[in-house]
Design a protein around this nucleic acid. Structure first.
Lengths: 219, 219
DNA sequence: ATTACTAAGCAGCGAGTAA
DNA sequence: TTTACTCGCTGCTTAGTAA
């Protein structure tokens, strides 16, 4: 999607073209976009070709309406901005499934953790963790999790050692309910350890290396 | 503001660059934007020149953070999208001040209207209307008002005639509290008639032809 | 590995204009 | 008035490459 076409679509939407047909000449659009009539005309042609708008050309003006394809594009852009500014809600991560070394199973089976998961998250975690290595480009986002509180799981003693504090966030993993688990200590993990009431590998039919989307709910 | 720079800024913001410095190479950004490393590098230079981001170049990566100038730009874009999709809130109109023919004064001084304004809008309207001729390009938006209910002011009898139903919306006129008044009949008015507790011409120090912004609250 | 320069090529812009 | 074509020119893009 060319940025200037999205921009144009946005202007059309601001004039009400999502809900109604609007009467608009290429000259008027040009003024709005601070460009030439020719360029505005070309933009409209491009949007039309890509089926983002419908047009009815009259002798004087044209009636323009944004199609559902165009509206979807705008909505996506909107959701991005929402993610930026209404940070309270959620953050999406993309990554790929990797194997742990069995330690996930060891920890999640500790009664001290399991009982708290049940109480704080509302589900009994399937033994083991579902580990998603976050894409390089998205690792910056991980920092956000460190600044956003989350659900505290308290440390406890068992088997002659201490199991440390852990922070959780509710999450969905490819749409399935679950949570992510962050050891309070480790600073720059690039892996999200997910727990869930389901055996996710089976439920999602995924193997090592497959793409996974994790949506983390920050509050 | 070049559209592709806004797009770039948005991607940076999605990676958390409004609140934190993020570590990002031009190559990574290029992948994200689906362009070449050179172009991504140039974008970053441009954003830097225009003081929309700050950069700290290291040997390996660069630390990037969005400045308040950049964040303001993004916020404006966000607010536009908000206006498109969260239509429930408000619509902004631009236009210029024009004179009526005294009929605004005649109507607003009718007790039948004045009492209802007081009751429904919570203020005593200054006699007369403040008339704003909406810019050509924005006239499409006027249609939205027709589909959005508003506050009904009932018709009444006086002086041997009927004063018809009127619909109001709360509004601000260049920031001052007021309302707009739409006769239920007239179909495609291109003038917003505003009322306000203040004598707006004086309060705003405006004359015929001056630019005015009217923000209409739809609910 | 980086960033970012130069140079060449190509996409997009708008003046002029036809319909 | 409109829309939208052609075409010359500008400026954006990217390959190659230096640092």
């Amino acid at each position: 999607m060319k940025p200037y076409l999205l921009q144009t679509l946005k202007e059309l939407a601001l004039l009400g073209a999502i809900r109604n047909k609007i009467e608009l000449s290429s000259h008027e659009l040009a003024k709005q976009l601070e460009t030439s009539q020719q360029t505005a005309s070309r933009y409209l042609l491009e949007l039309d070709t890509q089926q983002m708008i419908t047009r009815e050309l009259g002798v004087k003006k044209q009636l323009i309406q944004i199609t559902s394809i165009g509206a979807d594009l705008l909505e996506n852009a909107y959701l991005s901005y929402k993610q930026i500014f209404d940070l309270s809600t959620k953050v999406a991560f993309k990554g790929k499934l990797i194997s742990g070394m069995g330690e996930g199973k060891y920890y999640t089976e500790q009664k001290g953790y399991a009982d708290q998961f049940k109480k704080q998250l509302g589900f009994v975690a399937h033994p083991g963790t579902f580990n998603v290595e976050i894409e390089y480009i998205e690792r910056n986002k991980l920092r956000l999790l460190r600044n956003c509180g989350g659900i505290l799981i308290n440390e406890f003693q068992a088997e002659n050692r201490t199991f440390g504090n852990v922070v959780c966030f509710k999450a969905t993993i490819n749409g399935y309910k679950g949570a992510i688990v962050l050891p309070k200590r480790s600073h720059y993990a690039i892996v999200l350890e997910c727990i869930s009431p389901y055996y996710l590998r089976e439920k999602l039919g995924l193997h090592d290396g497959d793409e996974v989307e994790v949506i983390v709910y920050l509050q």
